[in-house]
Design a binder for these strands. Structure first.
Lengths: 141, 141
DNA sequence: ATATTTGCAAAGCCTTTGCAGGGGA
DNA sequence: TCCCCTGCAAAGGCTTTGCAAATAT
């Protein structure tokens, strides 16, 4: 739920730039995942695409999501207490807040959390995953 | 890998205190998981117990680990890039560092990281998960 | 005696893979 | 034409579940 909808040709350009053939199925998936969806699961992507594209298989959905993630256009997110992965169109560094009641996921700007690992020597940090869990009383954002 | 080995009767007492029957299988599992193991998977627990107990089923291993986790004696940990869960005898609040080369997991004392969520109003944080990933050049701990 | 627990096998869930057919370059 | 992509179904890996036998209180 990063974003403003991208025009189709812009999505197409992005795929090409990443060396990914902009097939009809991939474009359909991208329209949803890159623009409209809010941390959807593969199943949710499938459901949406089923309503907007004649025929697509779940395998293709998975394959496409993996391809996009590998190309850096999408981020796969696996949460401890969730059985299925979700996909995040926000690929810049950020953290997550999970509403324990609804399961809704919010993106947190990196400035919202100060992670300063004071590790022993020899530890080189390449990646930081932060997931906050709790409740939200105001439905705004 | 919290710990010094607990004597058997101490483990037994802990189980009783948690309202868990200290059966032979559970005691065997606890000896490994609470004392000797370092973030093992269920499969690893099974392997160890197979060498120290006549007969145990994988289902019982899973059930026991779940029981222990539910009782707060153990913490189940699911990492994004790992297909199977690992179990942590350290149940106090702490974070994790994953060596991307070896997969080894290190516990980080909570003071090692300063997480200060600057969230909007209405957000109540109940839990913070932090996983650092990177490399370790010195094998010390 | 009654309630738990175990073992085994089967099922479940999410995800990946193999392969033949189809579409794009 | 040639290669990549898709669909389908089957397989795969991890974990849970159902049920009868065994065990604990």
């Amino acid at each position: 739920m990063t974003a403003h909808c991208l025009p189709l040709h812009e999505i197409e350009a992005r795929l090409r730039a990443a060396g990914i053939q902009p097939t009809a199925q991939r474009l359909a998936i991208c329209q949803y995942v890159l623009c409209q969806a809010d941390h959807p699961t593969a199943e949710q992507v499938k459901l949406w695409v089923d309503d907007h594209f004649p025929k697509i298989s779940l395998a293709t959905v998975y394959n496409t999501l993996n391809t996009l993630a590998q190309a850096g256009l999408l981020r796969e997110l696996r949460l401890s207490d969730r059985d299925s992965a979700v996909y995040d169109a926000n690929v810049s560094e950020h953290f997550h807040f999970v509403d324990e009641a609804t399961g809704r996921i919010w993106d947190l700007e990196p400035t919202a959390i100060d992670v300063r690992p004071a590790l022993g020597e020899g530890f080189q940090v390449r990646h930081v995953d932060v997931v906050l869990r709790g409740t939200v009383t105001t439905p705004a954002d």
